[in-house]
Computed example of a mutant assay.
Amino acid sequence: MELQLLLTLPWIAGLFCQTELYTFKHVKVFASSTSPNEGENVTLKCAVCGGNSSANYHMYLCKNGVAVQMQKLTGDNDAIFALTTITSRESGNYSCVYANKKIPYSEVNSTGKYSIIIQVKSENKSLPGTLTTTLAPDGQKYEVIQLILILIAILLALLGMCYIAYRKIYKTILFTFPTVNTASADNTLDDNVLYYDHTGQPVQDIYDS
């Protein structure tokens, strides 16, 4: 029993030696912009405020509590991190922590005492006159556009048919003349109008000999 205990103790001691507890110090973080547009560049500055003038240390930029970049610095130098040509995937909570030794990114899990939120704005510009529907998939947008084009085509066809019918009615009225009976029931001409025969003589009754 005692022999087994003696053999086990070194293994337990080695296990504790392999387990490291990292201590992170929090620093303030500043950003050139907290609401940039997609495609822009953002600079993040992690400021060390004294107390570390001669030591070497490693500064970590964390996004949502996970390290994404690291810089090795000396003294009171501030760490400058750059996010270039950012997209909406870079949106998140950013903070800075540092330690006196280099630590794997996977072991740096800290949101930091000071943090800022960067929200990347995605540009969704539409051309003037382009019909779009809010919060609708692209397939539905195309269906709406096709439906409107069909309705416009039907409307134009109806207007064309109405125009053709109008032209036909107009021509019928214009070129159709009613038969005018110039003689009265007693075969006499209008007394108020003076008529002339083929000889040029005025007549009152068309049947006078």
Rank of each mutant, 00 (worst) to 15 (best):
A47H: 11
V48Y: 13
C62K: 04
L73E: 14
N52W: 08
T43D: 12
N41T: 14
M59E: 10
C96N: 12
N37Y: 06
G39I: 00
T23E: 10
I80M: 12
V42F: 00
K101A: 06
D76A: 11
D78V: 01
K25F: 14
K25S: 14
P36E: 01
T43N: 09
T84I: 07
A31V: 00
Y57G: 11
Y94E: 03
Q69T: 04
V66C: 10
S91K: 02
T43A: 08
V29A: 01
F30D: 13
S95E: 02
F81R: 02
N77Q: 15
I86K: 02
T84Y: 05
T85I: 03
K25G: 06
F24E: 12
H26R: 04
N56K: 08
G75E: 05
M59L: 15
T87Y: 00
H26I: 06
N56C: 06
K101C: 08
Q69A: 15
I80W: 08
S88M: 07
A79P: 04
S91Q: 03
V48T: 09
K45N: 10
K28L: 07
K63N: 02
A47G: 03
D78Y: 10
N77I: 05
N56R: 07
G51P: 03
N64T: 03
D78H: 14
T84G: 01
C49K: 13
G92R: 09
G51D: 08
N52V: 07
V29L: 15
V27G: 01
T74W: 04
S32G: 11
T87A: 09
S53Y: 08
T85V: 05
E90Q: 15
S95P: 03
T74N: 15
M70S: 10
C46F: 04
T74K: 15
A99D: 10
V42S: 00
T85D: 13
S95I: 02
A31P: 02
K28C: 05
F81T: 00
C62N: 14
C49I: 11
G50E: 11
C62A: 13
Y57R: 15
Y60W: 01
V97W: 01
A55E: 12
A82Q: 15
S95D: 06
S35T: 14
I80F: 11
E38F: 00
K25Y: 14
G65N: 08
A47Y: 09
S33C: 01
G39L: 07
V66H: 14
T34N: 03
S33V: 00
A31K: 01
N56F: 15
Y60H: 12
G65E: 09
T84C: 04
K72D: 14
P36S: 02
G50P: 06
T74D: 05
A82G: 03
V66Q: 13
